[in-house]
Design a protein around this nucleic acid. Sequence first.
DNA 1: ATCCTCCCCTAC
DNA 2: TAAGGTAGGGGAGGAT
Length: 1254
Amino acid sequence: MLDHTGNENMTSKRKNRDAWAPTGFEEWGGYMAAKKAKLEEQFQERAAVEFKNNSTLFQGLCIFVNGYTKPSADELRLLMMEHNGVYHHYMRPRITTHIIASNLPYSKIMMYKKSQNPLPICKPEWITDSIKAGKLLNYQDYLLYSNHTKTQPKLAFAATSAKLAPELDTDKDKVILDDNSTKSKEVGPESSKPNTVSKQVSPTKEGGSRSVNSTKNPEFLSEFYNNSRLHHISTMGAVFKDYINELRDKSDKSFPGLESLKKLKRPNRTPETLDPMNSDSDEDLIDSSLDEKFAKQEPVIMHIDMDCFFVSVGLRNRPELKGLPVAVTHAKGNKAPQNASSREIEMKMYKERFKEKLNKGQKIEEKDQESSTVADKHYENASLSEIASCSYEARKAGLKNGMFLGQALKLCPDLKTIPYDFEGYKEVSYALYDIVATYTLDIEAVSCDEMYADCTKIISESGLRPLEFAEIIRKQITEKTGCPVSTGFGGNKLQARLATKKAKPNGQFYLEHKDVRRYMSTINIRDLPGVGATMTHKLNGMGVFTCAELQSVAIRELQKELGKKTGEMVYNMCRGIDNTKLNLEHVRKSVSAEVNYGIRFESATDADKFLKQLSEEVCNRLIKANVKGRCVTLKLMIRSKNAPVETAKYMGHGICDHITRSKNLISPVNDLSIIAKEVLTLWNQLQQIPEDVRGVGIQISRLESTKSSEKSNLMAFINKTQQPGSKNKPEILSIQNVPKESKLGRLHGFLLTSKQCTPIAKSTVNSTSLASSLQSTPSISSEKKAVTTSNSVESGGSAISKENKSLRQATSSISENGNQFIDQQLRSSKPESKPNNIEDHLLMQEIDESVLAELPEEIQREITDAAKSRVVKKVKNKQEILPPIQKHSPAIPKSRENPPLIQKKQDAYFKQSKPNIEKPKKSEMPPIQEVDLAVLLELPDEIRNEILNEYRAKANESKQLAIPGCSANAINNEVRDKSPIDEANLSISQVDPDVLAALPKDIQNDVKDYCASKKLEKNTTSAQMNNKNVLIPKRFGTATSRSTVNQKATRSIKSKVSDNGKSSKTSKNKKNILVNNTKSLKKSPEPKQQVLDNDPGPAAELLKLDTPDIESKIKENATDNIMSLSMAAKSGDPEDQKALLKLLVEELMDLSLKEVKIQIQNWISESDSVNEVDFLAFTTFLSSLPKEKRIEDLHVLLKTMHRFISKSKLCVWHRAYRKTVEHVQHHMLATYDSSLMVPSIECEHVACSNGEDT
DNA sequence: ATCCTCCCCTAC
DNA sequence: TAAGGTAGGGGAGGAT
Ligand SMILES: Nc1ccn([C@H]2C[C@H](O)[C@@H](COP(=O)(O)OP(=O)(O)OP(=O)(O)O)O2)c(=O)n1
Ligand SMILES: [Mg+2]
Ligand SMILES: [Mg+2]
């Protein structure tokens, strides 16, 4: 560890990245994104295309997308579907016809090439260009490793670079031979591609630098991600966390693996009951069996982890290397003439830094020595390529994962290196997870090769001892994957993990309760999970090296040295105590993308360009994850003052300083234009020299789900409607909101209408803030650079600066946006002091950001400009009238000038919680009062119904959440103050009296009941909230099912609403929403709140009038929908309908079970209305399964459908489900003379439950 | 006292 | 050459 640590420290900053699924794991993450496409839409589009054009463009083609591609794998999948092609999520030996990739490692290309049936590997442009051309172009013109030059498909003279080129070409020929160049159109598209092969080929002189450099190689980003192991493992980690959620959702609760275990044991003993008796065994068993019998009080947690994962996977096809020291790396071993000077310097600096750190602690000796050792090694020309994983034989020589290859070779000269095989890892990971999932779904995915599973039930029900079970499952996994795996069992996660460590390699171990204490004392503190190099150091400084020694340290002492929580954790851990539960429902809290390799900007333009690319990357990930975020953070790694310009490691980041700057947005966003703007603003604020940038990262936090099921279409709906002309979403609020009261009112109820606010103060505030921000910006910018320390979030000033800059230079393209940004920033720059907030409110009131955002850019500019001028004026006024604002800016001395202001403003609106905090998805819907009825009424019935249903559903949810005293007033006040959007969760509860009154009676009752009955629940809920690990009862919330409410989320509620100058925080309670609400109510008397309250009044009235009608309409619509569904088949254009239906059904027939599930999920979860065509298609499809003898599949699919529909509170869906089941049963009876056991849907609405649409 | 931001640390 | 990402817990210290 020291060694590794050392390296890490050297860089001094390492961070992780996330992954996004470049390779192709995206099956789960719905795609939806870019286009918001829903499966429905996809189907429709596809059907339409097929039907009309009967596009068979790709008929007969079966593609497999490997690695990161420009049109993402998902997009390609859709394109294939639209044109009658087939998309494979995995390479299928004799079925796949083409491999699509933007770039592949040489090893991979070779692999494909050598395969028995070499398949052509084409660039994704082949697909897109063919579509554009309306005909299938010759794929040979798009071969990945063909000559890049388009024109010369077959020749590979690329030329300069040469070495690889020839080989590649050769490969190509071999691989691709089959097809002939039938023709090829010109190659326009690929012209840019000469580089595609670049990765490997181009390394010619200048070319070499190009291929790697972020600036010079346009394909840098994708190439980098495609080759980054850390990116891959992060991505896969996220994928498997989702996968587990997915499996759990789909589960029918049957565990075949567990069942077979029961059978195994039964012969010997009677089932569970007798287990205790069984005691065939030994010590362990007896205890455990007793426990099992009664309460299973003793939980049994399993930790399972593949042995030297990457190596094991790689050795599957290299049996000759088994038993030898092997490592997985990019480099092959030889090489690397690096500049010794850089190494020397970096080493020196590293040492210095290390010493500093150590000094803080106390001991240093050993480490110093070690570091020096490392340093020595550093001087040499050893390879600085990192070893991802090394075999246990290699570990005997001292090798460790993460170590540099050069260093490793010194320790182990015989080390064999093998290349990465990311597809292989994924494959094995799936096998691992799938096997464990046959025993239980109480799984917490840790990474692609590791997880925790609660085996309490398995052990008790099967009667097996942990180690017996281990034997079985390990064997199963090894047989299936060809890779060794180790497992550890214990009473908690810590014990299980330590047991696994002891079990490795290829073993198993059960750390029994009685042995815990004894065993713990033998553990080295560094082996405790969570104790890394730094903490080890600190503890070593205290004379602590082992857990035994650690046990003798008082908790106070530990907390003093390590912090409160950390101290306590360590105190417990060294005793084998670990109270953390398995985190079963994984909920993402942030999405980020960063690159700290190969970053070399030569100009501000380079930096801008890359930031935009990275923004795009993050946006894509957000979309893929179905989330939007309200906080944007830019992370930079900047070359340290004395660090060499040329890093020791080729294209590495060297020794750097880290700088972070974040900004809160008023509303959640996943829009590229907005995020890019914010990022560029932040970048400009940081005022860094482009040439010194060595790393860039963008993180989006404070996420909210965008899934319709979860969030509702309200936002989307509102966005669309709100601003007529606008196209985009409501962005972040910017300070300058144009005066569209109605809009504001709807969207951001809290803001209230300006009327309420005291005009003067408010107006002044806004203007002041803006002005201050503007003014301050310049100065600030200069300051910031130096700052390594963190500052307040964003500064309005920065925004301004940005604007200025944008106007001047770089962001010219973005200039338009720039204005918006500025606005936004200004907004964000809340007034620190309350006065500022007030002003902000005024501004907001004046200009609705979201509205603004939607307007054409030109208009936006105008407005923005006008606002600015206005602001300036106001500022002046304010200064006179309300000095506070300006003062504030200056007052904010400490951190960045304006930033604080901005942030505060935002906070005031929303209450945000920390950036990290996320709220449940629910929150997206604005309080119903805010919904503009007029707009609502204008909407199509379907949409209107959806919206209303959403609210209704939320009302239900609120109940669940148990907002006890959810008297609307209090809630409303708070919400308003904060921001509707933020506290989505709250929004549910926010129902204020007026609104409540406006609601249909049944809903009213529901709400009341909930409030009354949920108090109890609330308590429970709050308790759960406290515990991160606690699963949220997803079953309840329709959309929110998965959202876990956590403390932070709750916390957000607290928004500090600073009224005038007073900072009245509505409530702070993290845990108790109710409390918060209550507080807010009490505080409400404040001016702002009152104002707010007033506003609602009118709106409420409107609602009342309209609501009833709407409600009824909704019901009607629902009915209509159902009716239409049944009718659809019959009416319409019979022929067309039939043909379309037939096509769809055939399509479904061709899909794998998994794919169909995904389709079903998308169909249901992406919309609140039932798409008739899809309904008919699915129902017809499912009804035809009995004939196909696919009963298993039918069963699974119905469960899938049930699962997702259960989440929907829409009766329309419930009915659709019943109808489908009815139809299916009919066919079941006809075919098998028996019906299928399927779950039924339960609905609160009696009419729905009883009714039946039929 | 509690919040919030900017880090730092840890894990894979 | 080399592909040093990513998510989340937590602490320090300023602001309220
Ligand atoms: N610094 C690291 C650590 C890990 N990994 C990758 C390669 C590993 O194979 C995989 C799993 O990590 P583990 O910690 O589980 O390590 P191994 O599986 O390699 O070995 P062990 O047998 O100790 O689990 O993650 C990596 O690329 N870089
Ligand atoms: Mg492992
Ligand atoms: Mg592991």
